[in-house]
Structures are given as structure tokens and as C-alpha cells.
């Protein structure tokens, strides 16, 4: 899945995005184990949200973040799968036509 995150040039932001890819998390938990302050984590999350990559909702006093399934990340995953499937079909067709003497 590394390819998906190549868009995210900032390594910390990428790290946050990768954590969210494994499941929704509150800001506090995301901040744990990261070498940056909680406000800095919030700033990265705001950037990810602005890019349509993550979405958030309130749960009590906490704000939970998750990957936006309707965002660009989902489209990119789909296109990546699509082209893999299409090129597999293409390779098969080339090989089929190689067997064909005509």
C-alpha cells in the first residue's frame, strides 16, 4: 500500500495518514508516539482534511479522524486496481495472440 501515500510528501503527515488507514482514531491517540506536539498533529490533520483525504466527527468531547472513503484516496485506490486489472488483461491478450499463428 506504500504507493498510495507517495502523494504525501511530508513524512509526519504520511505517518498520520498511514495510522488512519488502519482505523479511525482520536487526535490524542494519534499524537502518542509521534515526535511532534498535539497542536502540530492537529495542523497536519487539517491539511489532510483540506485535501479530502481524511474526515472527522465528534464523539463526546473527542474528535475522531478517519480516511475519507469518498475522497481522492479512494479514487486513487480504485484507479490503481483498475489499471492493474486492465494491464493483466492486456498481457493475456498479447500472449493469446502470440499462440495464434495467423
Amino acid at each position: 500500500m506504500t504507493y498510495l501515500f507517495s502523494a504525501l510528501a511530508d513524512p509526519t503527515r504520511r505517518q498520520i495518514f498511514e495510522r488512519l488507514a488502519k482505523g479511525a482514531q482520536p487526535v490524542g491517540k494519534l499524537a502518542q508516539g509521534l515526535p511532534i506536539s498535539r497542536p502540530a498533529v492537529s495542523q497536519h490533520l487539517a491539511a489532510l482534511k483540506a485535501a479530502g483525504l481524511v474526515t472527522d466527527h465528534a464523539e463526546g468531547t473527542r474528535r475522531i479522524y478517519r480516511i475519507d472513503p469518498k475522497g481522492l484516496a479512494a479514487i486513487r485506490i480504485w484507479l490503481d486496481q483498475f489499471w492493474t486489472e486492465a494491464l493483466d488483461g492486456y498481457v493475456a491478450e498479447v500472449e493469446r495472440s502470440s499462440e495464434d499463428p495467423s
Binding site: A7, H44, A47, A50, A51, L53, A73, D80, L87
Partner: peptide, 13 residues
């Protein structure tokens, strides 16, 4: 902070 993140192209070889 840069708020614009462009997704990388899908590349296949």
C-alpha cells in the same frame, strides 16, 4: 503549512 496535497499519478510498468 502547505494545504494542497496532490495525489501522485498511478504508475504501472
Amino acid at each position: 503549512m502547505n494545504l494542497h496535497i496532490s495525489p501522485a499519478p498511478v504508475r504501472k510498468s
